[in-house]
């Protein structure tokens, strides 16, 4: 029981991180119909920026977090401006190769800037772990879950209450119609890229204290985030949350009761399963383009 609870805690913690990554995928997909294969690399950048700002430079925690997220968002905007917008022929196969290229490129940059070693930093706060029925819940886990929930609520308010958020949603529904009523579509796409990569950066920032951050961490996290997004239904905010937690918990149980070697395989098997069987996600009824 105690063991089970421990796995559940670790599953929820990882799940919250997958959810943040999944939200990034979904936001971009909503506004641009694009799936960014480099999204995981922005998570990596967020974590490593955090390592530098908080771990090495010892900036105050809030400043470090904001700086890290801002740096990643800037990288995302540069990527959109230089690579994505220059594509004359935006077919999926072209955009896949470009974003995959970007992911490899960012990975290489990460390796050159931060080296091949893994880095760790301290938790956001130094409270001792909570003891719940014998299982330990790290203070960072609580931070992660709180930040996830705040972000989700914040985004919901942004999309439903602010003019910019509504404009983005309108643009997502029909670019042409949005353009006719005077919503600048280019700006909206940039904003979507900025927000989506900022979410990636945020995921990196909150994961940095509980993992070994290194240049090659992104691909795996990106894929898992994508898997979570697909599980909950790509494009849905709350779906991303549910998908993230579901994946995290399933994965943790897999580690606990089957084999730790299979941890990463769980996500991919789930991903293939969902792609093959129910590509609209388990909770949404939206259909996804298949064949």
């Amino acid at each position: 029981m105690q063991e089970m609870l421990q796995y559940l805690f670790s599953g929820i913690t990882n799940g919250a991180i997958y959810a943040v990554i999944a939200i990034g995928f979904s936001m971009l997909y909503n506004s641009t119909d694009l799936i960014n294969f480099a999204h995981g690399e922005f998570v990596m950048l967020g974590a490593l920026c955090m390592v530098t700002f908080f771990g090495t430079l010892h900036l105050p925690i809030v400043l470090a977090i904001l700086l890290a997220i801002a740096s990643v968002a800037v990288a995302g905007l540069v990527f959109e401006r230089l690579a994505i917008r220059s594509v004359k022929n935006p077919e999926p196969i072209v955009l896949i190769i470009i974003t995959v290229g970007a992911s490899i490129f960012l990975r290489g940059i990460g390796m050159i800037l931060w080296g091949k070693d893994a880095h760790t930093i301290a938790s956001f706060s130094s409270h001792p772990p909570l003891d719940i029925a014998g299982a330990k819940l790290l203070s960072q886990s609580i931070w992660i879950i709180v930040i996830l929930l705040l972000t989700a609520v914040g985004l919901q308010l942004f999309y439903k209450k602010t003019l910019t958020g509504k404009a983005m949603e309108a643009n997502a529904i029909s670019k042409r119609a949005a353009w006719i009523v005077g919503i600048p579509s280019k700006l909206m796409i940039m904003l979507a890229f900025g927000l989506s990569t900022a979410m990636g950066g945020l995921a990196g920032v909150i994961i940095a204290p509980i993992t070994m951050s290194s240049y090659d961490m992104g691909t795996m996290l990106g894929l898992k985030g994508f898997c979570a997004a697909m599980l909950g239904g790509l494009g849905s905010l709350w779906g991303a949350l549910i998908g993230g937690f579901l994946l995290g918990i399933l994965e943790a149980m897999g580690v606990g009761f089957v084999s730790s070697g299979l941890k990463d395989a769980t996500a991919f098997l789930l991903l293939l399963f969902i792609l093959y069987v129910k590509p609209g996600g388990i909770i949404s009824s939206a259909s996804v383009k298949r064949f």
Partner: peptide, 13 residues
Amino acid sequence: KLSGYYLGMGTLG
């Protein structure tokens, strides 16, 4: 049966 991005993700997985 998948196409576009989903095919990319599927083969990647």
